[in-house]
Every structure is written in C-alpha cells, then in structure tokens.
Design a protein around this nucleic acid. Sequence first.
DNA 1: TTGAAAGCGCTAACAG
DNA 2: CTGTTAGCGCTTTCAA
Lengths: 329, 329
Amino acid sequence: MSRTTIADVAREAGVTKATVSHALSGNRPISDETRAKVLAAAAKLDWVPSQSARALATRRANAIAVVLARDPEVIANDSFFPAFIAGVESVLAESETALLLQVVPDRDAEERAYRTLSHGRADGALLLDLRADDWRVPLLDELNLPTVLVGAYEQPTDFSCVRTDDAAPVREILAHLRAGGHERIAHVSGPLDYVHSRARADAYLAEIGSDELLREGDFTAASGRDLTEELLALPERPTAILYSNDTMAIAGLSYARSQGLSIPRDLAISGFDDDHLSAHLSPALTSVSSDPAARGRAAARILREVILGAQPRTEFVDCNVVHFRDSTS
Amino acid sequence: MSRTTIADVAREAGVTKATVSHALSGNRPISDETRAKVLAAAAKLDWVPSQSARALATRRANAIAVVLARDPEVIANDSFFPAFIAGVESVLAESETALLLQVVPDRDAEERAYRTLSHGRADGALLLDLRADDWRVPLLDELNLPTVLVGAYEQPTDFSCVRTDDAAPVREILAHLRAGGHERIAHVSGPLDYVHSRARADAYLAEIGSDELLREGDFTAASGRDLTEELLALPERPTAILYSNDTMAIAGLSYARSQGLSIPRDLAISGFDDDHLSAHLSPALTSVSSDPAARGRAAARILREVILGAQPRTEFVDCNVVHFRDSTS
DNA sequence: TTGAAAGCGCTAACAG
DNA sequence: CTGTTAGCGCTTTCAA
C-alpha cells in the first residue's frame, strides 16, 4: 500500500527507472557501484516492486492456479489435497510464484474461472481429479494456458502429465488377500469417471474377472457405509473388501462391526490413500500411501518449465506403497 | 492468453474503450442499446478483461492471501485447514476474488511474502495460527494491509477478529471426566505460544489448579506418543488425558494400548478438532468439533467488508461442540 | 449519455 | 554500461 514507486527509488539513487529495474532483475549488465546505489535506495525507501504493474508489463502473473470443483465436504475430508499443495508450494517458493486456489460450485463457474485465470491472473494451471475425456483439457488448450495433468490420464494428449501407477498396488493387495485364502473379494470404487478410480477398478476387474462384487461409491463415508451394507447383504457375501479410499473403508469397517463381524477374521478390509490416522485404527487399516507431496513437487516443477517455454513432458512418479496392516492380516 | 483487448471490443462495438469499461462495470449510466452492442461484441470476441491491467488501474488485486508458516507435515495432517479454506472460498466465489496461498519455510520468508503481497498482489490477508504478541500483527499494520485475525487473539488490537471460545469445551470435558470419577487428569497441549493452545491449557489450569500433569506438545503424532509415555511412567499416573488435537490423542491412545492399558477403563482419552475419522476409531474418540468452514466464511466476509472500507469488527463464532464418545465413557 | 486523454508502475526496445 | 521513450490493458477524470 505504500506509495513509493520505482520512480522514487530512481530519483533517490540518481538514476533512471530502467536502471533500477535492471539492477534488480539482472537483465542487463549493471556496474557494481550503480547496483549498490540502487539497492541502498530501495532499502532506504522500503520499496517492493508492484506485482500488478510488473504483471501487466511482462504479461506474466507469476502465479499458477488450481481450480477445485469439489464439494467442500469432500475437500475437508481429503488427505491428498493438503499434502499435494504443500509439495507444490515447496517448489513455487523458490521462484516467487504464488498459488491461486479457487473452489467452484459447478461446471459453468469452473469454465469462467479458467477463462479469467488465463487473462492475467495465472501463467499456468494444475489439473486434478481428472476424468476420462475431461472437458477441461480442450478448454485449456484453447485458452493456451500451460497445464500439467496430475493423475492417470490416458487419452493421448500434448499436455504435460504427472502419472502414477494405481493398478500395481491393487494387484498387490489382491494377491495378498488371495494368498490369505480369500476368494470372494469386493471392490468399492470411487466415481468411475475419475481416471484414478477407473484405473483401480480396472485393475480389480482384470484380476477378478467379474464385476459382480464391484460397487461404485463417491468417496464419502456415507457411500462407504451404504455399499458395504449392500455387499454384506448378498446371499454369498464377500470375505474381503478393497475400498478406493480410507474414508469409505473406515465407514465400511464401522458398519461391518456394528453387524457383529470381526475384522479381519470375518471380513478383511483395505483402503487407499493412507490417511494419517489409518495406521492408528484398531485394527490398523491396510492402505496405499502415495506421497502426494512428491507429486505436487513434480507437477509444480514441470509447470514452471513449461511456462518458461519448455516442451511438455510426462513424469512418472512411482510412489504408491502398500502398507499391509492388521485389517487384512 | 488471447490477444483481444478492450480496444478490440470497442472497435467491434463502434464505441470507445471507456464505454466498454462502463458498460461492464455499471459505473456510469449507459443506454441499453449501447450496452447491448458492447456485450454482444465482447461475447463475439470472447473477451475477458485482463486482471493485471485492471489491478494496476484500480489498485486492487481482487485477491486475498493466506500465508502459512507451517511444516508441510503438519499441514498434511491438519483437519482444520482444508475445511477453513473451503469456507473462505464459498464467500470469495461471490465476488470474483481469488485466494492466494503461500507456504513459507521461515520467518524471513514470511515477512517477505507479506511485503510482496501487499504491493499489488493481494487486497487483504487472513492470519491463522496466531501467537501471543504475534509479530505479524504490527507488520501488517505497518503495511496497511486489511487483515482478519482468526483465533482467540486476546491482545488489544484494531484488527478484525473471528473469535471462538476454546475454554468452554475444555471445561465441559473436565466436568464430564470428573463426574465419571477421574481425579488425576492430564493435559497434552499444543505449543503454548499459540493462542488457541494457550486458551485450552489455561482453561485446564484454571479448573485443575496445578500444572503437574500438563505437558507441552507440538501437535504431531510423535509428541503425542512421547508425552503419553512420560505421563504413564509417573509413579501415580493419570487416569485421563485431554489432548489438544486428535492426532496427538490417537498417537497417545495407540501407545497406551501397546502398554496393555484398556481405553477407557484404564485411561480415558479426549481429543480436539474432531478429525473426520475420529468417530470411527474404536473406541470412538471424544473430541471437539469447531466448524472450520463457518469460521472461514465469517473471516472472508469480514475481510471483504474491511477491504471495501468498513470499520474493523470482531465476530464471535461459537461453533465448538463436544462429542462425547466411547473413549471417555 | 458518450468521447478523448491521462495515467496506474513497471519493463523493454532503442539509442547513445 | 546507462538514459529515453514507448507501451502493457485497463479505469477514470474532464469535456462535450
């Protein structure tokens, strides 16, 4: 809010605005003496360059955006997001880049958000919660906004991606369960239009060969409970359930127990995402940790490169680790 | 990134830039006919005003900032933050205001962040994780950046606040425990320079009258475990422990159990913040929910008013609700 | 009700 | 190595 501008600093230092600008940016050779004068003047006047003026002149906002079209309740209960953001920030901090966060209620608002964002608010975007044939991909292409897709996006695309392999941990858990003698293994997935839910469900289907025991949930505790109820009511009920996140798994575990089942004796349960509390449940919950911070760092790094003109590239972050705990022992 | 500017729209509509500007802002009377022409031209050219140009001209960034100086691990395990942000966003969305999030590693970086922010990046800030005599308060005052303090800040201040009463739920839990026959009740607090940790600890001290069983933790699972170990090793060990967050409570619960104690028979445990999984533990964890989304909404609303020139004001959000569950039954 | 013109504070050619 | 001069794309007086 202070009214000191680059002109004041220039006057104080006895040089021109251009010199002040370059003394700070290093965009052209400056004598040590002049630079010292400029820095002294800037310090004396407590001057910080105006970001909005700079943004207008350079056509660069020095900010990147994440737009979330999720229900606030889902955001609040999601263990992926905060860690991911923390990872993103750790990279952005190095380059004075800010993170613009926007939570929107519906698709219209989301589209508007991207349009505004691309006009002087942000230099790039990170796309989360990808869906098959995601409509945002062509939109961002049209807007010409550098973008990194985070997730298991499989359509051919010219965008950069940070990919993970969600199928491997599913196979690993299934193998473990089968080795333990389980034959009827169910899967409670997330919404199947999300690519990560889909990848997990597909891995399940490929191994099990039937969708008889597949149920599509929505990552909320309520859906975990309801679908567990449905599965346990089957004439021949499953002896193990693999959930696509920990929230649903824990809701399912609670329900099963309320019906007098013992975990894991009567029902083995595994989650996904490894919420930080899951290891402390009893029985401790088998789950898959995925180092969201590492994915955030990778995404931010790639986006920064692309903004600076690099070619899009895909990075594979193999961070999924299955933690076998008592709930499947 | 599109190169269409207000000049293109003006030309297309056969008017001047000023008219286009006013047709959209409504800042001066415009004939319906002209407005229609302008809107049509804007739609046809797919024009969105440049935020950076607008920010420079109006000296308003249309963004507010939240700066977090927390360890990424703590952010990832915190249930307050995402819900708070969701609440903030629900208010910002109405006014095309963006949220700028910055995670910084240390105090220097934090101070720099606020200085830059106040120069054309943000119109205001929300202050979280307040400490007694918080150094950021005078800084933001000096920077003249509208600010809302979120928490139980008790120093006299001219800033706006969103306050809660953290003492009441502590008293309520202690009363409940005493009614259940507990006489040696311990408290594992958060860092005592945080005002919310302090408020809880003070309420505990006022009720119990001694700090013999008070231990200062840091909200991490590790500190919950270690301090529980310390308390349980006392010659006359406590029969109940009140933790200042759920993460520490659950780590403590795990440890106590590993020592052969039964919860709540041998040791009653209560947490704070009501993580979404806490109700699903067994035993379910007694905790205090505090509706972070409501506090986010209140903070964003007040900040918006103050940015628009309103006088600072303090709002009391009484949202703390104790959920008594099996861990203290 | 509209037009013309002067900035907002910075960067980036272009000269020197 | 440094100064001059135009803008960046908007908003907002001041006139008409």
